[in-house]
Design a binder for these strands. Structure first.
Lengths: 213, 213
DNA sequence: TTCGAACTCTAGACCGCGTCTAATTATCGA
DNA sequence: TCGATAATTAGACGCGGTCTAGAGTTCGAA
């Protein structure tokens, strides 16, 4: 790693940590890019060299994170069904977010501007997952791959939305697992079977499969 | 309908039509709010009285549309499974967008700023659907309702993403139907059955259910 | 070690979105 | 007809995001 690269990474992290600190102290909207830049000892222009927008500093991933999720994708066996691969990768990815998700959640709860942004965590991860899934599926299955990408995304954001502030991160992960399974099995079956192994699925008369909270 | 209300609706429509015309002529980014306001014969401030943002003028629904989708929701039988209701409502809603979706699509294709916005069509519709589904499901099923909301959303945007420029609107609707069925039946079953009625589902060895394009 | 190429940082100007205020005008109900 | 209420407006402001020109830094090859 050259000096240039090391400096670059250091600057990236300096900007981000300064920004997150200020955001937490004063709130997202109350902090301007200028203040972030000043706190990180760089110019405003440099901030925009590193982050495409003010939001990006909240949602972008540390460059080294990218290697981690790439590894996650590579280690899925080639003959595994796509849905299982996607579920496993997404689970693995979110597990590594244990530290940062609570902060993001706090900021989002506090700032309408951030809350509205659908930039949940890692647009870059989504992009990577997208290209990975399309490459894996082959041209014929393009729409299937697309659908499953959107579904794994939907499952994740469902678990995220249902995640209460007072609940621990493990509760989130558990819900994510529930959602992924539920989607995999189909949500339109009135006669969904209970799962003896987990016991999280219940059945109601004339309703779709439900998930106990 | 009072004079005030009639005038208000007229102004709303004047702003919107002026905006869409300009956008189509010159492109989204090349048109400023000031120019829209001038073309609609109102002040810039009035524009922001009617639309929360420049994007909103592309995505907001005509106030009378709201009545239409409310009717869609009300006419679903109370004992229908939630997933079927959601599918039917979403299908009915999108069918009424036949005119406007192609334009939105063109604008999005042309403007990165719009494309990135996840404000697909009708944040307001989504909100209404949200409250409707939660009221319908009752407190116990909150997470199930949430999940199904996100899934119907995912199915719709999948069909949208797979929709090529040269294809007609009916192709989009057909794909939407495929996606909704596929989600309802579960996407994680390697042994998905072919559907004799539509013939759109195929089966592949060791893969999830696939949908032919 | 030197030197030019390539990269990075920076100040500063600029544009447009979105907010706010205070004042003017139009509609309403009685 | 008149007071209350709502809609419209000009104008100023802050901030995010872009761009340019130039200064400073790192790199690799001679």
């Amino acid at each position: 790693m050259s000096l240039r690269e090391r400096k670059k990474l250091a600057t990236w992290r300096a900007i981000r940590t300064a920004a997150l600190r200020l955001f937490e102290e004063r709130g997202y909207e109350a902090v301007s890019v200028e203040q972030i830049a000043a706190a990180a000892d760089v110019s405003r222009a440099t901030f925009f060299n590193y982050f495409a927008s003010k939001e990006a500093v909240v949602f972008d991933q540390d460059p080294e994170e990218q290697d981690a999720w790439r590894a996650l994708m590579d280690q899925r066996p080639a003959d595994e069904p796509l849905w299982e691969s996607l579920s496993a990768i997404m689970t693995g990815f979110t597990e590594r977010l244990a530290d940062r998700m609570p902060l993001q959640r706090r900021l989002k709860a506090q700032s309408p501007a951030l809350a509205q942004s659908t930039q949940d965590f890692g647009a870059r991860f989504r992009d990577d997952l997208h290209t990975w899934a399309l490459a894996r599926a082959g041209a014929d299955d393009e729409m299937t791959a697309l659908l499953q990408l959107n579904l794994v995304q939907a499952a994740t954001s469902t678990a995220y939305q249902a995640w209460r502030t007072e609940e621990g991160f493990d509760v989130f992960l558990q819900r994510l697992d529930q959602c992924l399974r539920s989607v995999g099995e189909g949500v339109g079956h009135p006669k969904a079977a209970a799962h003896p192994d987990t016991g999280v699925y219940t059945m109601e008369e004339g309703r779709s499969a439900t998930i106990s909270r």
